[in-house]
Simulated scan of single mutants.
Amino acid sequence: MGITSFAVREVDEKTGSVTYALGGTAPLGLEDISRLLVTELGECYAAFTSFQALAAEQETYVAKENETMLAAMARTPFTEP
């Protein structure tokens, strides 16, 4: 969607002079971008599904151990580091 290589430095091998050319590479086509975005969307869904599974695992652990953790915190006074 953007332009790359907007400014190009060119050196004349014979004279050693340097010039800068403005131009660029044509942007990606809509079909290319659409295909890449569909792939990326699948990766996003997979990552979110994994995150949901991790959160559910943590929720299950905390719910199960809640009473034990609260009792341990009540017995151990908080001290400043």
Results as ranks from 00 to 15, higher is better:
47 A>P: 03
22 L>H: 04
55 A>M: 10
51 F>P: 02
39 T>W: 10
21 A>Q: 09
59 E>S: 11
49 T>V: 14
11 V>Q: 05
81 P>Y: 08
26 A>Y: 02
47 A>Y: 14
24 G>L: 00
70 L>W: 05
60 T>K: 14
63 A>R: 08
76 T>I: 09
43 E>P: 03
63 A>M: 06
10 E>P: 01
18 V>D: 03
48 F>Y: 15
59 E>F: 10
8 V>L: 04
17 S>K: 13
13 E>T: 14
11 V>C: 05
77 P>I: 02
32 D>W: 01
65 E>I: 01
49 T>E: 15
13 E>M: 12
35 R>C: 06
9 R>D: 02
44 C>N: 09
56 A>E: 14
67 E>C: 02
25 T>M: 03
28 L>C: 11
22 L>M: 12
28 L>W: 08
32 D>Y: 01
71 A>E: 12
29 G>C: 06
68 T>H: 04
30 L>M: 10
34 S>C: 09
63 A>T: 07
25 T>W: 01
63 A>P: 00
44 C>V: 15
35 R>Y: 07
16 G>Q: 05
46 A>D: 13
64 K>R: 12
53 A>V: 11
14 K>I: 12
70 L>Y: 04
66 N>Y: 04
62 V>M: 07
18 V>Y: 00
41 L>K: 07
21 A>E: 06
63 A>V: 02
44 C>A: 06
81 P>H: 09
28 L>P: 05
52 Q>E: 14
34 S>W: 12
54 L>Q: 12
73 M>R: 10
7 A>M: 14
24 G>P: 00
65 E>G: 00
51 F>E: 11
16 G>M: 03
2 G>R: 07
61 Y>R: 12
51 F>M: 12
35 R>K: 13
11 V>S: 04
77 P>F: 01
21 A>D: 05
45 Y>W: 15
20 Y>R: 02
71 A>P: 00
62 V>D: 01
69 M>N: 04
17 S>Y: 07
65 E>F: 02
12 D>P: 01
79 T>F: 04
13 E>F: 11
40 E>L: 10
2 G>E: 14
12 D>Y: 04
1 M>K: 10
79 T>Q: 06
28 L>E: 15
26 A>N: 03
69 M>V: 09
77 P>E: 04
65 E>D: 06
23 G>D: 01
5 S>L: 00
16 G>E: 01
81 P>I: 07
36 L>H: 09
45 Y>I: 15
11 V>H: 02
70 L>V: 14
69 M>S: 02
31 E>I: 07
53 A>K: 13
14 K>S: 15
32 D>V: 01
38 V>E: 13
14 K>M: 10
64 K>D: 07
30 L>F: 08
12 D>M: 10
12 D>N: 15
75 R>K: 15
68 T>P: 01
38 V>S: 08
11 V>D: 04
29 G>M: 11
20 Y>Q: 06
80 E>D: 09
33 I>D: 08
28 L>K: 13
21 A>G: 06
81 P>F: 06
44 C>M: 14
52 Q>H: 15
18 V>I: 13
25 T>K: 04
5 S>D: 00
64 K>Y: 07
15 T>S: 12
31 E>H: 06
47 A>N: 13
17 S>L: 13
78 F>R: 05
15 T>A: 03
54 L>S: 09
30 L>P: 00
76 T>M: 07
74 A>H: 02
32 D>F: 00
69 M>D: 04
21 A>F: 04
29 G>I: 03
23 G>I: 00
